[in-house]
Design a protein around this nucleic acid. Sequence first.
DNA 1: TCCATGTCTGTGGTCAGACCACAGTACGGT
DNA 2: ACCGTACTGTGGTCTGACCACAGACATGGA
Lengths: 241, 241
Amino acid sequence: MTTWEPVRRVRAFEAVLDRIESRIAAGTLKAGDRLPGERQLAEALGVSRASVREALRVLEARGVLVSQTGSGPDAGAILAADPDTALSDVLRLHVGLDSLSLDEVIGARLMIERWSAAEAARAAGPEALSRMRAALTAMDDDGLTPAEFVEHDTAFHVAVTEAAGNRLIAHMMRALRASVRHYAVRAVTDLGPWPAAAQGLRADHEAIYRAIAEGDPEAAATAAESHLRRVYPTTPPPPPS
Amino acid sequence: MTTWEPVRRVRAFEAVLDRIESRIAAGTLKAGDRLPGERQLAEALGVSRASVREALRVLEARGVLVSQTGSGPDAGAILAADPDTALSDVLRLHVGLDSLSLDEVIGARLMIERWSAAEAARAAGPEALSRMRAALTAMDDDGLTPAEFVEHDTAFHVAVTEAAGNRLIAHMMRALRASVRHYAVRAVTDLGPWPAAAQGLRADHEAIYRAIAEGDPEAAATAAESHLRRVYPTTPPPPPS
DNA sequence: TCCATGTCTGTGGTCAGACCACAGTACGGT
DNA sequence: ACCGTACTGTGGTCTGACCACAGACATGGA
């Protein structure tokens, strides 16, 4: 007797997912396109509307879909392209589950920020530099709360990463910052009395900016690293040299 | 008259998501725990079972939940900790949507593989080295198809990244490889006649392994980079020096 | 006593149908 | 020409039902 091939149980929403993802992979569906209505899709695929909706929720969680109520051209399910929130949600949850430690997130940031600063020093144009400068200027206000300061700090570092010219790495950077934003504010307040403690951070940023503007990759990477180590003195596990 | 703050429309499944994620963040729920049944959860939260299910689908997409039918201790919704498939699904879809280019994925791999090789050279112990060696040995078989070869190739590179000691970066690495696995096989077959073309790859891997085993971070990083550039000669945009 | 068999029970998976809130659009009256 | 209202199609939600599955348990025969 031959062995029986067990039937592969595929849930209905997974089948729906397959059909939609196939069209995305094939290029039939691209960002900005509208999906058919839920009722229409359900009938076309031979499943219930509930199963279609579960598939849409998954696509939404992956950052490739947004749904809007109402009528008109903007209503319905529209293909999007926003990996940031999807990635940061995944990371944030797994940090909460201790599947990832804060140290590891900081370690990943260390890798990305070193790389970004070095690449930015090679590639940054005047437009990218002015965006960094804008974030630096916003951080000069002594009236900022730590939380507000961190927002501008993130804007600066994201601008650096974007200047490096790799959108995927920029997405990772934004996701990493967003997933540990809560801890970042805490780390900053732990630095010492506020707003005096901000001075050291401003000097760090200025050093990074200068190295990038002067096109010195090595100095930029070193400045980025020492900045991160100042904010998270205890955490990063592997000494760099 | 004051401006009216518009009521923030929160969909029912998002409210469910909030409650569950709060417990994860607070540590009340940890990996391995079981969620109440869908019916029970629906009644406790005052929403329909369909809304609960949509929330569970999202958590499943984020890699923090698995659902199983049947009864007994293993049935039901169980908290998991698998970021890999979640991350790679996100990346794969966005590559398909042209939100990310293949070049950018390769660029990110370049960054991670350089870093991993260098860190592995500092940190790899005998157990990690033997796992790399096992993958190398598996690649020595001339009867392998390109697809099989790539599987072992991935195992080697993942072993290197894991030896570097940062699980988050290892997750990223696995996700990146998985999301472009299809292209990797193609790139390998484009190298030239098979299995002759495998020889060059074996030599590359051997060089990486040797540098790691000898504890030479610089050589390891350089070897990893030149290996990736051999497989993807046209793609990487920013010249490294 | 032991083991095979069938039944019970609680789990997720699926479906059909109904109603609501919302936002454009078309039509009608002014 | 203008404005307001009804219409229509969208996602959002709920109810209640049924199915498939797998462990736990009772039952019965060897």
